[in-house]
Design a binder for these strands. Sequence first.
DNA 1: GTCTATACCATGATAGAC
DNA 2: GTCTATCATGGTATAGAC
Lengths: 198, 198
Amino acid sequence: MLNNPRKSREDILDLAVPLFAKSGFDGVSIRNVASQIELTPAALYYHFKDKEALYFETVKHAFETKTSAAKDLIDNGDEVFANLEKFINWFVTTLNRDNDFQKLLQWVLLDSNPKRMQSLVKDVFSDLFLTTRKLAESFSPRYDPQMLSISIIGLVLCHFQSEEGRKFLPGRKAIHDKPQVISAHIIKLLKNGLAPAC
Amino acid sequence: MLNNPRKSREDILDLAVPLFAKSGFDGVSIRNVASQIELTPAALYYHFKDKEALYFETVKHAFETKTSAAKDLIDNGDEVFANLEKFINWFVTTLNRDNDFQKLLQWVLLDSNPKRMQSLVKDVFSDLFLTTRKLAESFSPRYDPQMLSISIIGLVLCHFQSEEGRKFLPGRKAIHDKPQVISAHIIKLLKNGLAPAC
DNA sequence: GTCTATACCATGATAGAC
DNA sequence: GTCTATCATGGTATAGAC
């Protein structure tokens, strides 16, 4: 292993993101990360206290740039369905562009360590949730804002969460992976539901 | 470790299910499983070729009893919304009763090993998907059946997937975890959407 | 800030006795 | 069918030289 040009914390995190996104906390070793970065494990421990800290910072880093953009999206002056469409389009586009972001979100929600999940949810997921909740409140009291937030996030997320698995199911078509198609499907379903127009 | 009464394959799988459900393939060791079953690792290897085989059989076992019940649920003679309600109620009830089932489904979809994911999706998930697809076809051509299936499954799943994480978010209420409430919310949303009734 | 070297423990898996 | 014993490998983490 050679004496590499010094890596910044950010360089390390950038390279750790896809690893943890693919295999989660337990599926990635310090040695894996170190070799990806072209550093030794010992050098990694100079930058991060332990594996938990590295993982936490990695997830936080991957979320940081994303969810801040969503905040400014919902405009209280706008019509409610305009806000809904803006949000769905933004969320679908974001998940489509950055597969790691979507994967890490799943790992957070599946985390087998409750303490780790708690800090990640609070630190990393609550921004996105609160933005969705603000949107969902437009449909109160007809819908419970909390439940509607979960439904909206889940409805978007599932199309990406299932992307790899769907490849092995019958009836697959390429258009099901296209962000514009996914976006349109979700907006139509959320707006009108399944009942025939009256 | 004592000479225990002989365990059958099924006894082992029953006890392995909650372990893999909590921590996934990488988060569970052969020793973890062995000690839970009160056997030695060597005894486990008598029953299963390797860890992959144990995991595969465990997930398959957890799904077996569940998804077969769904098949008989959708009655072509029935009105479409009656079938939809029956399905949602069944799925919500099933996920609520058996948390392991829901967790394992998530692990399958997040699996970092494509070959393992493929066999699990084909062998274990396709039944549930095809049942949902049959239901979704009632709403064709207004909705693409493939995409609608994913949306329906995702809409139900997300309320359970987020159950632990939601505890750490503001606005939490106990009713959001109740199966009847979740069921009613989803059915209402799927039927009517967010647009005001006309 | 990165290296070499290493401590120490957990892992998947097997051989062979009973 | 289960045990004890063992192996090779890989895991997290640290000490100390440069």
